[in-house]
Each structure stands twice: as structure tokens, then as C-alpha cells.
Amino acid sequence: MNVSSAAVQACGLVKTHGQGQSRVHAVDEVDLEVPQGQMLAVMGPSGCGKSTLLHLLGGLERPTDGEVWVAGRRIDTLSERALARMRRRSVGFVFQAFHLVEELSAAENVELPALLAGRSRRQARRRASLLLDRVGLAARARHLPSQLSGGQRQRVAIARALVNDPLVVLADEPTGNLDTAATLEVLRIFEELRSAGQTFVIVTHDERVAATADRLVSMRDGMFVDDTRLAGSHPRGLGGLIGLEG
């Protein structure tokens, strides 16, 4: 397998749950290569294995069979400790439910991965401040998640995912809990990041979100059934493309 140019690769990836007759293939013989700088959207109906695939790519779950490579390093054989270190350096997660720490402010949430990665408090704070500014939340840095709207919370989560300059951002239904305006805000940020060369794997069931990607993979019953190259950023602007403009 050529792993040199790919940010993320999967080969013969299988994940099963249960045993015997109740055995279910959540992910079934999936091969995938995501080059650096690409925004890949994975679509499919609920329960088709999208989120499981994302967890496998980020090392949150271990595959039953197959290989996963991140930044040229095979990760499915790593220890939990090494996986954690890999996530610090190479992977940023964005979840549908945001998964912010409720008792920490927006800035403190964003700082957290930097502190876990061993950065000094000052460095972590500076980086958090920069990213919150970038996602348009500089004024809300001291707010708790409960004091923010859904869109703002997701923007905090995006800033948090980026704080350690990850190679790839894995986003699981990032707009699933958001209204139209908030979805637009999030997608604009993703668009900016893609333009800056950030690699994304976005799991979604929203076609409008998928339309902003460079590439769209469709999943059904744990398998890829389609793999399409898209145009990516639309000349009419993001809102026009996804039908969110007034």
C-alpha cells in the first residue's frame, strides 16, 4: 500500500458487532484513501456505518479486520497510549452533539487539547484566542457552552479540533443539531479551512453539506456503494450552492 501522500488510508476495513447469528457488519471491507487537503464527505442512511468508520479512522474504535493509516503510520496496531498521542498530533474531532466540557468556558474548552499535548498555558491561551477569533467567537471566549447557541457551540468545537494543527479533521454530523443559519456559519468555516489546505472527513446525511466537499462517498450496509469527485467550492458562493441564501 502506498501511504506517502495520503493523510488517511483504510484498507480492507471491517468492524463487526455481536457474535453468531446476531453478528452485524457495521463496516464491511472498506478501502479508502484521503489525500492531504481533500474534503471528503461520507453519506448514507442512519445506521449504515458512517460514524463507526469515522471512529475507526480516528482510532476511537479498533477494527475487527483491516488496516488504518494516519499520516503514513499504521494506527490499528497501536496501544491505547500511542493512539491517544496520535490523536493529539494528527486528528481533530467535531461531533454532532458538540461534546464540549460544560463547566469550562469556550476558551478553556479550546485550550484543553493544547494543554493535553503538553503546551504551556500561555501558548494554549494564545492559540485558543487566535482560533476563537478565526471562528468569529472572540467576544464569547469567556462564555460557558450553556450560554452559547448551537452554532456557536459547534464553532467552539471546530476551534478546539484545530488547536493542535491536526493533519485531518474528522467531523461526525457537524450540522446535525443546527438550524439553517448556524449550518451556513459552520460550512463557511469549513470552506475557509479547506482553502487553507485542511484535510476533512465529514460524515453527514445532509446532501447540502456533502455538496461542499471535493469528493463524496456513499455508504450502505457498511460498504461504499459510490465514490464521486465533486467541484468543491462553488463560484456562486457556499450559500448559493446549498440553497441557504435568502
Binding site: R89, F93, L112, R160
Partner: peptide, 12 residues
Amino acid sequence: AIARTLGATPGQ
């Protein structure tokens, strides 16, 4: 769990 997704090891 969130801390672990952000890079905290099980030992930590």
C-alpha cells in the same frame, strides 16, 4: 471520553 478524543491517554 472527550478528553480521550482530544488526546488524553488511558493512563492519564
